[in-house]
Design a binder for these strands. Structure first.
Lengths: 260, 260
DNA sequence: TAAGATTTGTTCGTATGTATC
DNA sequence: GGATACATACGAACAAATCTT
């Protein structure tokens, strides 16, 4: 199993290929090794000094390789006795940030995002109907109650909109389908960031508030009653009016250049 | 503008926080700087030696920071005169791999993926109808023609399935909505990887072949005719039968642990 | 509390590789 | 080919964090 002595890190660069620096090569080799060993979350990787011996590279090179893996969320590192590097699970936050970077230059529009929300969110609530425990339903109602009155100022309106997006985000957290949950949470975050950074929704839009609140209350009712079809229809309507109300707003949606 | 002398890299670690190593801090600082300068793809970053002066850190630390940014696809680095680090656009491949890592331990099921394909792919073709130039349509037909006969062996069947997924992937490439296009391409890749790595679709499934081929030919016709409603219906049917045919198959879908 | 052991974190000096002119 | 301007890589020393006793 543990085949000691220097692993297969090409010493010479292949011709043609874009050329890969040695840290990258080492990082690739370590990844392959982790997969081949079937290591699971929390499993310990060889120590720095062992890596140096195993891959026959300097400490600096090994460390750069580890930083690469760490930046991707694949490993975590601790100092001290019992420390070292460990296989880590990629966090949602990091996954979102990494995906967000991809769209940094892509200039997504609000229309783009709503095209997908309209397709996915009704689907989500349809599968969620009757599946949520009472505490989860109560939490959703609490979020709705964070904006019992129409906003008086643009600032207040922003806060309300963010709370409303939080409602969708929490809903997504309960999805059995992890991919579906992730995507809805991702879009909620994009819209949330956008709301924070720009002067959207001014002047306060009373209609948006009224409709959004009504939809969300109806939705929770349908979820509690276990009526998936109804929940789906409510969300579809909700998305449609939300999109209409937002389309007058700014077009370009810049996702941020990251976060760790 | 270029405020020389050491930038704001915290010298002391904040209490409470999980503790960030200096390379990570430097990487964060550089990211912030790039954003604050509004640098665009291809813009040049300060040289290694200037970074050393600017952030008052050793070469090793700066290099680790650069590897972090590189691993996230945010910068590219070249050696030689005129070389250095440049702002880079995150490639689709990298974005897919990074997102794939997140789902590595998440055990997506085929059902999960199809739930989303069924929601998104009909939407895609509806917006694509009448929008594709003739060469693009011809290319799609070429992909369909890669499997004119039912597969004779499991190996052949696998190849056909991959070609069929390629059809969806190419379709996604033409989406105006970059988010929509990315997601459909991402799912096609997951399914493609799965098909390669496992023994799915054995014994050869003639029904899958017949139906899939017919749907795709009808679809291209509808796209050429510019009939979005029809295209949507065809894709919806296609997805539904594909899901039915695949649900008997293995349940767990492991996405790979990466690729650079 | 303090000392010691263990493991990663950081620095510096030097040498090598690579691309442009 | 040679000079130049960059990144790349190595190795040895020292610093900091954290666990154990």
């Amino acid at each position: 199993m543990t085949s000691r002595k220097s692993e297969t890190v090409p010493t010479k660069a292949k011709t043609g290929e874009p050329r890969r620096s040695r840290p990258v090569q080492v990082a690739d080799a370590i990844k392959d090794w982790v997969v081949s060993q079937g290591l699971r979350k929390g499993a310990r990787l060889p120590s720095e000094t062992e890596m140096i011996a195993r891959y026959a590279r300097s400490k600096g090179t090994i460390r750069e390789a580890m930083r690469i893996l760490e930046a991707q969320g694949l490993i975590e590192t601790r100092t001290g006795p019992g420390g070292g590097s460990f296989v880590g699970e990629v966090s949602v936050e990091r996954a979102r940030a990494l995906l967000g970077n991809y769209f940094y230059f892509k200039n997504l529009s609000i229309r783009d995002i709503y095209q997908i929300r309209r397709a996915l969110e009704p689907e989500l609530v349809a599968t969620l109907a009757g599946q949520l425990a009472e505490p989860a339903l109560v939490e959703l109602e609490t979020l709705i109650d964070q904006y019992p009155e129409p906003a008086a100022t643009p600032d207040e309106e922003r806060e309300q909109h963010i709370a409303s997006l939080k409602f969708h985000s929490r809903l997504a957290d309960h999805a059995d389908n992890e991919l579906l949950g992730f995507l809805i949470g991702f879009m909620a975050q994009i819209l949330s960031d956008l709301t924070v950074s720009r002067q959207l929704y001014s002047p306060p839009n009373v209609e948006l508030w009224q409709r959004g609140r009504a939809y969300q209350m109806d939705l929770v009712r349908a979820l509690r009653a276990g009526d998936g079809g109804l929940a789906r229809r409510i969300m579809a309507d909700h998305m449609e009016t939300a999109q209409t109300l937002m389309e007058g707003q700014e077009e370009q949606v810049l996702t941020r250049f990251f976060a760790e």
